[in-house]
Amino acid sequence: MKICCLVKEVPDAAVQKRLDPATKRLDRSGEKTLNQFDTHGIEAAMQIREGGAVEVDEIVAVTMGPDSAQRALHKAVALGADRSVHLSDDALAGSDVCATGYALAKVLESESPDLVLLGQQSDDGECYTIGAVVADHLKMPSLTQVIEMDVAGEKLRCERQAEYGYDTVEIQLPAVISVGDAINEPRYPSLKAIMGAKKKPLDSKATGDVGIESDKVGEAGSQTQVLAINPPPEKQAGEVFEDEDTNETVEKIVAWLDERKLI
């Protein structure tokens, strides 16, 4: 079985984020880190390999991003991926979800994976969509927010918490699975793995290498555009009062709740 793990470099959660007023997109300068949710994807791949139910020939980390994204690949490899693929091209800059999903699907196509794993969301605001976009392009079945996954032959048995409770779904390989953070506890990379990460093969690919049509990616290929950035609506300063007569206080609270249709 060949597993591809999609990983993404995102601004570190601890860094105060800001929007670049010029491009109206997330200012991605400053510290970046491997998207924490993607580490769960890599861990899931490692657990399949170590579980022994199926033989895993290769775990490949795949990312789309500028040069700095290689750091995310090094981390992914330190966590256990055998090699990595870096899709990088100026033409890809400014891609929205539609364009990004298409581009990732093309690079994954060139790898022909049996299973694609990724984190269900990332700290930079994107959530629950890339997996499904990629899967449709690849013509593979897909599931998101998976918190439990078992491999049995050519099938996966997955669990996820949907609108009405827990769904158990059987899905045939090849498939694209987006995992939630409850699925596993990612391991820490050993120092040996960290030191050896740069030596593992890293293939850089440009759009032409994997058949990406440039009019479908980048700013030009994006189907959404940010029109404006506004501060959040002014929250009316709330009323604060002292509890002098508890019965009255409680009446007041209940009236307030009622007014807002909360009871």
Partner: peptide, 23 residues
């Protein structure tokens, strides 16, 4: 809101080459 909305919306994004906004 809800999980299926994301999954279906995302699939349509790919199928129709459409723009998508979430949350």
């Amino acid at each position: 809101g809800g999980l299926l909305g994301f999954e279906i919306g995302a699939g349509l994004t790919a199928r129709l080459g459409a723009g998508v906004t979430m949350e």
